[in-house]
Structure formats: C-alpha cells, structure tokens
Write a protein that binds this DNA or RNA. Structure first.
Length: 291
DNA sequence: ACCGCACCCTGAGCGC
DNA sequence: TGCGCTCAGGGTGCGG
C-alpha cells in the first residue's frame, strides 16, 4: 500500500519512538515469508540493541542499530507501523471489530495480523507492525553486509533529475507508467503517485518510455518530486489501510487529480478521467490533458 | 536486458 | 444471510 510519502511520514513519526531506545523484548507471529529473517533469529538479534538512526531508501525503512547491524522494514501493500495508543478503525478488521465493545472497536487490538511488537527498556510506547496480506517484509542485516533489496534500488524519487530519468528510459520500450513503478529505475514511486505525476506532467501513461523527449523527462521528474513532497506535507494518502503511526489519517487522497477518479471530471478540463489497466495495475489519466 | 504475466495473502464489496 | 467472484496502493520469479 504505502509509497514513498507514506513511508517517509511513517519514518518521521517512528523515528521519535525508536531512536535512542533499547529493545527489551520482541514478539512475533510464526514463521512466514513476511519474515526474511526467521522470527526466532530476529528476536534474538534485536533484544538488547539500541537504534541509532532510522533512514528511508525508496519504500524501505532501515533502522541502524548500535552494533552496526541493521533492521530492514517494508510495508508492502497493507503494512501498518504504529505506536501503542494509536487509535483508528483501519487498525482492525471489520470482522474483529464486530466482536468488540463499541469503545474498544474504535481502537487497535492486537490480532493475528500483528506480526512484530517491540518493547523497550526506556519509558514510552511499544512499536507495532501489523500487515494483513503479509506482503510486507522484515529482515535483519549483519554489520557490514549488503542486502540485495537495497542494492538494486534506483535513484530515490524525491531527488530524481530530468537528466537521470531521461538516461534511465533510453532502452525501455514498456509504457512509461510501468517503468515508473520499476524500483530499480526509480525508488519510491507506486501506483498512486505514478498516475498523479504523469497527470501533472501532462504525459500519457502508455507512451513507450524511450519515446519521451528530454524536456518531457524534465517535466516528469519535476512532477514526481513535487507530488511526493506535497503528499508528505499532507501526511500521505489514507485510502484503505494506511494510517500514520499515531493513528491519524493522511490527507493527500483528497487532492488526487486522477487516481481513484475514473469517470469523474478532470479537475482541469472536466473531461471524464479514464481508467485502464497497464501491466496489471489500474491506471487513471485524463485523455484531454495528457498527450 | 527487457517484457508481460502468475503468484504470494487476506479482507471488503458486489451481484445473485 | 450466504456464496462466489473481483479487486486492492507491493515485489519476485518465471518463460519468452
């Protein structure tokens, strides 16, 4: 679910909970492919460690630990990283909510989808990682070791330049929309912001990437940076599952120009927004504004 | 090297 | 009410 803005908003809030605190205990669910590092090993590796910094690379969060090892986190489609005390209906399934008292049903209750809980020596809230579909990932990386998931990432989308984009697109015959989603080209853009950036840059989603002219790549790079920055300032997009770590919703979804607006009038020209499928992903665009 | 597709998993919403 | 179907913002791995 979450793309660069949601991950960055999460990073900024989680940083305050995590950095400078020492892990007292770790609870996990059972082994599944959510755990790139098996849960038993993960628990053993993390207990006693203090987090020195929390950084973001593309859609990944990386906690740097005091022994030089690192904790890699990815939210996948439905991952939720939040602090104890966070309250949101998004933190509970409807089915579970129905079994709870009205009061408790408005907040988070640990459930079978809460795969990781970190408790700390210092005062302050626990940290929870919940993920219904388990497309999220958690991995421990030994001191000095690389991780292929990080190594293969392209330039961070918040910093991409038009020249970098132009160079990266030269041999790509696939639709520009598909190439924007390729994390080895551009790290951080997902389905929502790919559609939004292409709208802002006035570029048709299915154009072959290598046909984009240099000036169009400049426009597109600027649109990508702009839409991501704007979404971060609005707290990201809360559409299905995403909540900020304090339980509050982001607000960027109310500003979307095309994403999720199939059939509705374009905010610029009133033409109905089209919804098509590109590379198996829903794609939204304005047939008038985007050439 | 690149492209499109199936697949991993679960819940929500829909039509019947 | 219940069933079956479709869809969902992520990424990997496969064959062509």
């Amino acid at each position: 679910m979450p793309e660069l803005p949601e991950v960055e908003v999460t990073r900024r809030q989680i940083e305050k909970i995590l950095v400078g605190r020492t892990v007292l205990g770790v609870d996990t669910t059972k082994k599944s492919y959510f755990f790139l590092t098996p849960p038993a090993e993960l628990r053993a590796r993390l207990v006693g460690r203090q987090t020195k910094a929390l950084t973001r690379v593309g859609k990944y969060l990386v906690a740097e630990l005091d022994d030089g090892s690192r904790l890699l986190l990815h939210l996948g489609m439905t991952g939720q990283l939040f602090a104890a005390g966070a309250r949101s209906p998004r933190l509970l399934s409807a089915e579970r909510r129905a079994t709870l008292s009205p009061e408790r049903a408005q907040g988070f209750e640990p459930d079978q989808h809460t795969h990781l809980v970190m408790r700390f020596a210092e005062p302050g809230p626990n940290l929870y990682f919940r993920d219904v579909r388990k497309f999220g990932k958690v991995a421990w990386i030994a001191r000095g070791e690389a991780h292929e998931r990080l190594d293969k990432l392209g330039v961070d989308a918040l910093r991409v330049s038009g020249a970098e984009l132009y160079a990266a697109l030269r041999r790509r015959a696939a639709p520009i929309k598909s190439v924007l989603l390729d994390q080895s080209v551009l790290a951080g853009v997902g389905n929502i912001y790919a559609d939004e950036a292409l709208f802002l840059a006035k570029i048709r989603s299915k154009r072959p990437a290598k046909r984009l002219r240099p000036e169009e790549c400049e426009r597109l790079a600027a649109a990508i940076r702009r839409v991501l920055r704007r979404s971060i300032t609005r707290g990201g997009s809360s559409i299905d599952d995403y909540v900020r770590p304090d339980g509050s919703d982001g607000a960027y979804q109310t500003e979307c120009h095309v994403y999720g607006r199939g059939g509705e009038p374009c905010r610029a020209c009133k033409t109905p927004i089209k919804r098509i499928v590109i590379g198996g992903r829903s794609t939204h665009y304005c047939p008038t504004c985007q050439k």
